[in-house]
Design a protein around this nucleic acid. Structure first.
Lengths: 212, 212
DNA sequence: GAAAACTATACGACCGGTCGTGCTTATTTA
DNA sequence: TAAATAAGCACGACCGGTCGTATAGTTTTC
């Protein structure tokens, strides 16, 4: 975190500041993120933050990138450890819900919150978010397509549509888990995709039997 | 609206102010909603707004209520005009997507934006949003249950789960329609529910043939 | 003319951002 | 090796601006 009360040189402490920024931004929004408050949390002066990121916007962009890294570590990589195909799709969805359930971020999901926040605000931050979101959906579609090509899903499957459905279930889980019963939200998000995949997948042994 | 002329004039201003507040809040968030900016848009003084709602929080709550009225008019009522059952579920979903597609609100969906915004902020505004959201999901579940009871969906249907899926498709459509290709988002949201309902509904004549 | 609706003005708090200063550290110099 | 110097970093103080809010005064309406 800080060294001798200073923000300190080196990428390590810098990324610690970004970790805190991700948490704070998920809570109060990327725009509501106050440099003064972030500095207070880190035990560092506001000017110190300005020394590293010359503007608030630069800090916001860096925060988005850090959130992408976390998403990569906690969701994409665990998903990719599963064998390709429906099991990988399922593992990815599972990892995403597990990440929400772990309550690493107080507001649920960094990207869901900020994407909605910047829906109608043109600018560099929105562009970055849109790019990240585009990469995410492209990734999802690629996984679905690979699954179809591997014969684990019917050949006529509408790939973008299924990718859309998978993402929609995740988004809804992030929202409902904070506003209503979290366990029900996670259970529904899981069960819904499981039903969908089981209905499509010709090989029933590739997916778990059922959920409690 | 009262019979009294003086109050009538006040109510008009009041209602127009809330309409503008809904638009503005969808754009910049319920928290980012500034009294000064709202006053500027309406061509009135900031103190005038403050005279009507004695605090910003009161204005925020009134804005939420106004957004609920709009939702009722534009989505719930059109949905209820369809005959009960799967056709009503479909009409409701359709009306929701049409509302998004009409771009009445610049940021997509008032409730999706604000719900995420207040995910991690306890207080009266969050409580109101949670209550509204609870009523909405209860309404959805009631429609689904009625459909099951009417025999248009299988008796064993998981009612909360299907309601969750319907709402998830709408939420995702609201988000994607701003960050990515809107038409694709709407098409996916429609097609997905159509597929789902057709797979469940034993009577194929109750739903449209297909979508372009 | 009284009451209601509206406005002008001001206040303190906080915002993002800048600036000059002192401290820490690394490099140079003798 | 020790002193001197140069450079980089973090700090407190401060700037103009905007926020929500309060109060006093003005216009409108009956």
């Amino acid at each position: 975190m800080t060294v001798d009360g200073r923000l300190a040189r080196g990428d390590r402490t810098r990324s610690a500041a970004l970790d805190a920024a991700v948490v704070l931004a998920t809570e109060v929004g990327l725009d509501g993120l106050s440099l003064a408050r972030l500095a207070g949390i880190l035990g560092v002066s506001k000017s110190g933050l300005f020394a590293h990121w010359r503007s608030k916007e630069a800090l916001q962009l860096a925060t988005v990138d850090r959130a992408v890294e976390q998403w990569q570590e906690r969701i994409v990589e665990p998903g990719l450890r599963a064998p390709a195909g429906v099991r990988r799709l399922w593992a990815l969805h599972q990892a995403r819900i597990d990440f929400y359930a772990a309550r690493v971020l107080p507001g649920g999901c960094f990207f869901a919150s900020t994407d909605f926040e910047y829906n109608a605000r043109p600018g560099p931050v929105r562009d970055r978010l849109a790019e990240v979101f585009g990469r995410w959906t492209a990734f999802l579609e690629r996984l679905v397509r690979e699954t179809v090509d591997a014969g684990e899903l019917p050949a006529g499957t509408d790939v973008p549509l299924l990718a859309y459905e998978i993402d929609a279930l995740g988004i809804a889980a992030a929202m409902r888990s904070r506003l209503m019963d979290p366990d029900a939200a996670y259970r529904h998000a899981r069960q819904s995709l499981l039903d969908r995949l089981r209905a499509l997948c010709p090989d029933p042994t590739l997916l778990p039997e059922g959920l409690s």
